[in-house]
C-alpha cells in the first residue's frame, strides 16, 4: 500500500511538477475555453438567425404572394437547408481540417480558425433546436401578438422567442456541453488545447495515467459547473410555471 502510494506520488511529480508541466494543462485549458466560448457564441447567433429564417419561411407560406422578395427569401431558405445538411452530414474533425488546411491554409491564427469551425458546426445544431422551440409555441401566442399591433419581428422578439428560448434551454445547454467536449479534436490542426496538452505531457513522460486522468477530470468539473449554472437559470425562468 505504502509502495503504491509512493509510486503514485512520484508519477504525479513526474507529470505535473517536473519542468513545470502543469503549465501545459493550464494553457490548454485556456485554449479550450476560448475556442468553446467563441464557438458557442457564434453557434447561438448563427443558429438563431437560421432558425428565424427557416421558421419564418414556413410560417408565412400560406397566402404568400409570389413577389421577388418572397422568391429571394425562398433562396435564402434553401441555402440554410443546404448548410444544415452538409454540416450535420459530415464529421466535425473533417470540417475542422477542411477549414484549417484548405480554406484558411495561409492563416496562422489556429485558435480563431478552430473557433470558427466549431462555431459553424454548432450553429447547425442550435438552429434546429431553436427552430423546434419556435414551432412548439402555440400559434395563438403569435396571433395574440399580431392582434395587439406588433409586426412580425416584434411579435417574435417580445412574445415568441422568449418563450421558445425558455423551452429550449436544456437542449441548448446540452449542445454547449457537447461542444466543449468536441473541441478536444482541435489537436488535429495543431491547436494546443486541453486534450493535446495531456498528450504532450504523456509523450514526454511516457506515463499515460496521470495526464489523461487529469484531463478527463478537468472536463468533468467544467461540465458539472456549467450544468449547475444552467440548473440555476432554469429554476429562475420556471417562476411563471407554478
Amino acid at each position: 500500500m505504502q509502495a503504491w502510494f509512493e509510486s503514485l506520488k512520484a508519477d504525479f511529480e513526474l507529470n505535473f511538477i517536473q519542468g513545470n508541466r502543469w503549465k501545459f494543462l493550464l494553457d490548454g485549458l485556456g485554449v479550450t475555453l476560448i475556442i468553446t466560448l467563441l464557438a458557442g457564441l457564434l453557434g447561438v447567433v448563427l443558429g438563431v438567425i437560421i432558425a428565424m429564417i427557416r421558421s419564418t419561411y414556413d410560417k408565412t407560406a400560406e397566402g404568400a404572394r409570389k413577389t421577388l422578395g418572397r422568391r429571394l427569401f425562398g433562396v435564402l431558405d434553401k441555402v440554410c437547408r443546404v448548410y444544415l445538411t452538409v454540416i450535420r452530414g459530415t464529421p466535425v474533425v473533417v470540417q475542422l481540417m477542411i477549414i484549417y488546411f484548405v480554406i484558411f491554409a495561409s492563416s496562422n491564427n489556429g485558435t480563431l480558425i478552430a473557433a470558427l469551425a466549431f462555431g459553424l458546426n454548432s450553429g447547425a445544431y442550435v438552429a434546429e433546436i431553436v427552430r423546434g422551440g419556435i414551432m412548439s409555441i402555440d400559434n395563438g401566442q403569435f396571433e395574440a401578438g399580431r392582434s395587439l399591433g406588433f409586426n412580425y419581428v416584434q411579435t417574435m422578439r417580445f412574445i415568441v422567442i422568449p418563450q421558445a428560448m425558455k423551452n429550449v434551454l436544456p437542449s441548448l445547454a446540452n449542445e454547449f456541453i457537447a461542444l466543449l467536449k468536441e473541441t478536444s479534436v482541435a489537436g488535429y490542426v495543431a491547436e494546443k488545447d486541453l486534450t493535446k496538452a495531456g498528450d504532450i505531457i504523456r509523450s514526454r513522460t511516457y506515463s499515460p495515467f496521470m495526464p489523461l486522468i487529469a484531463v478527463a477530470l478537468i472536463y468533468l468539473v467544467l461540465v458539472m459547473f456549467f450544468s449547475w449554472l444552467v440548473g440555476k437559470l432554469e429554476r429562475r425562468l420556471r417562476n411563471s410555471d407554478h
Binding site: 401566442q141 396571433e143 395574440a144 412574445i159 422568449p162 418563450q163 425558455k166 411563471s240 410555471d241
Partner: peptide, 8 residues
C-alpha cells in the same frame, strides 16, 4: 383560448 402570454 385567451392566448395570454404565460411567461409574463
Amino acid at each position: 383560448h385567451f392566448n395570454l402570454f404565460p411567461n409574463m
